[in-house]
Design a protein around this nucleic acid. Structure first.
Lengths: 119, 119
DNA sequence: TGAACCCGTCAAAAGGATCTGACACATGTC
DNA sequence: GACATGTGTCAGATCCTTTTGACGGGTTCA
């Protein structure tokens, strides 16, 4: 009876767009072997460091990985990333449930209204 | 012990990019209430018919929905879409496993090589 | 001081996804 | 025939994502 908590629509959307990319899937795979720092990861996967930086940001924003800036013994600052243990189930029901709480895709009128109201 | 079959990397990628879109999540939600035809769906969701057509194509290409062109009693041809019962589990392990079989993201050299070989 | 590492950010180019407004075709009804 | 319904497709505009190269900063070690 213990069911995983139903994610909000926006959260699930962030997770799906985060994982829906070959590079980011490979990053998850690479981090499966253990934590690693950015430059080493870039070499391992074979992409540039600024590019990897952006992908890691996206994964972290979705809550799938965690970055920690640490000072190594030699004094160098290194940012280690590791996997967050996540578990999402994708079925018509879970997707439909999440879709109900989506706040995205507002019409242009709604957007301008929100800007006016917020400002 | 019965484990859902591990999807290939390309398949999972298609599913993730298909579901990682607010409109398509809402389409899945709408089809959860039962099958429907394109024009009615477009009105229900509130988007244009050509746009919905494209989104349905993407969902069908990912194997999440199925379309059937039927002749209604009045002789009109109507395309009904319905949900395919799918179930994907997203964990670091499943993603990592799928990433190993990714064929996308070839380097430019590989791409040109394939073109030459294929032609 | 220069080299070799590490970190981050930025602007601009390139590519892909999304969206819209036409168009063409068919059918049944007023 | 005109109209409302359904189907599909297309070109072009637009927007978001991805990618690259060039910066800036920091630390150790020879």
């Amino acid at each position: 009876m213990s069911r995983p908590p139903a994610p909000s629509g926006d959260d699930l959307l962030k997770v799906l767009t985060a994982l829906g990319n070959p590079h980011r899937m490979r990053i998850v795979a690479a981090l499966g072997g253990g934590r690693n720092y950015v430059s080493a990861l870039a070499r391992e996967i074979g992409i540039g460091r600024p590019l990897l930086h952006m992908h890691l940001q996206r994964l972290e924003a979705a809550g799938l990985v965690t970055g920690t800036l640490e000072l190594a013994a030699n004094g160098k600052a290194m940012k280690y990333f590791e996997l967050t243990p996540f578990a999402y189930v994708l079925t018509p029901e879970t997707v439909a449930g999440a879709a109900l709480t989506l706040t995205t895709e507002l019409t242009k009128e709604e957007k301008t209204t929100m800007k006016e109201t917020t400002s």
